[in-house]
Design a protein around this nucleic acid. Structure first.
Lengths: 247, 247
DNA sequence: CGCTTCTTTGACGAGCCTCAAACTGAGTGG
DNA sequence: CCACTCAGTTTGAGGCTCGTCAAAGAAGCG
């Protein structure tokens, strides 16, 4: 039990997905029903399980219901780089191409099969969902570029701040947490592999942020004590996740 | 004049594009003719010119005939991060979404308008080109992930080595240079902004690679003296740019 | 030539990493 | 219920990597 952010088993498990998709495009009742119907075909994974192999083709797209996953790549000597995270409400395996990186569960993970969604969209039956999925892809691309800026041009201090702000925004959209607090079930090792730092330095940087009165972080919950100040120190600009104005 | 790698004005200017596309998918005679016909609508840019603004929508897709461009983003305090490069034969502005980063000319740049290509592909008229463009996108995605690994998990020495190997491969496909030498008209400042390093450190790292007998680099030409040794020091694995086996 | 841009070198300091070890908390089994 | 283990966090010490500041060469260009 992680307390107020735990997965309340069976309690509207599709909510994060619905909230996230609706933030990307308006959905019809039929579309909402389709999404809610996905709840049937669930899949469970343990931490470390590989959902999609590098080079493999995703059998089926999925939405995350609970838990976190990531896309990563390993080097011959064991170094790891995490490219992106998938939190509840977010999709994975939607790319039709061969996977360019492995997708792995970071925590206990629950997903639903999203095949009916892409099939419906391909038939042209669900314009709202089509726009939502397109916006989802754009958002993912944007997050990748943000990640590159973090790694290439931000200091450790800025990187962590920037990353926490991104997560706050993403999770709030899914209805997890609020403007200040959100669940963060990631170890410092995972943060290190994402942010291009050593575990030790991630730890020290977190201490620094704590001492500066900018964040709190304990037992899987992050609290941004001064979100605006945090945004200022790392030149954070919220990634456009708003409904697409594209035709 | 940069010598043996200069643009021989008017001499088969579409060759890099044709070679690159054919490396991605087999093309019919009609498709080849369509590409060659693009040579009419050329555009010229000076170093620093912005081809696509961040947030703007690409008016038209283009192929680079000669010169180099990049996608980048600027921070409020002037720090710059380069996400990717576009060398002769490569495409830019093919994404239909609003641009997530600005596209800028790094050298004198010559492009052709590729609108007829996407229009033809959309009509379903050119299956070979359709596959080539899809493979092009996949390749670009793969290069972005490689870039993230470079920035997050490679040392400066490894980053430069890795980057040079990537460029060699890309340029060879376009018929520019061979297994060892290729044109590299980028300043050390540009390399620094791509590789997440300072100019000074890029310079020192290049000296290190030279002293190690791994590379030569002068007046816009790079020579990989020991490509295999270079690949070994940075765990380089060639990005799959081979014809897609996808249906 | 004289200007500007780019490269190169030195000196110094800060940021980040590595090694090592202690500490904490959540199980797990006796 | 308590020792034990294991994963994760925290702290210290020391050193290498990389950045900053500064200035001196090269090289391209008008």
């Amino acid at each position: 039990m992680t307390g107020r952010f735990s997965t309340h088993l069976g309690v509207r498990p599709m909510d994060p997905i619905v909230r996230r998709l609706r933030s990307l495009a308006p959905l019809s009742d039929a579309e909402l029903e389709l999404i809610r119907g996905l709840a049937e075909r669930r899949e469970r994974y343990a931490p470390g399980d590989q959902l999609i192999a590098e080079g493999g083709v995703s059998q089926r797209p999925r939405f995350v219901i609970s838990g976190w996953a990531c896309r990563n790549r390993l080097m011959a000597d064991g170094r790891r780089q995490i490219f992106s995270f998938m939190a509840p409400g977010e999709g994975l395996g939607f790319g039709r191409r061969p996977a360019l990186a492995a997708t792995v569960a970071l925590t206990a993970l629950e997903t639903v099969d999203a095949t009916p969604v892409i099939e419906g969209v391909r038939r042209g039956a669900f314009p709202g969902l089509a726009r939502a999925l397109a916006a989802m892809e754009t958002t993912e691309d944007a997050l990748l570029l943000d990640h590159i800026v973090r790694l290439g041009r931000l200091t450790a201090f800025e990187r962590v701040a920037h990353f926490l702000l991104e997560l706050q925004q993403r999770l709030e959209v899914a209805g997890l947490g609020d403007k200040q607090r959100f669940p963060l079930p990631l170890t410092q090792e995972i943060l290190a592999d994402a942010l291009g730092l050593s575990i030790v330095h991630v730890n020290r940087t977190l201490q620094q942020l704590r001492r500066a009165g900018l964040i709190e972080l304990r037992s899987g919950v992050a609290i941004l004590l001064q979100p605006e100040a945090l945004a200022k120190v790392c030149d954070y600009r919220a990634t456009a996740v708003s409904p697409t104005k594209a035709a």
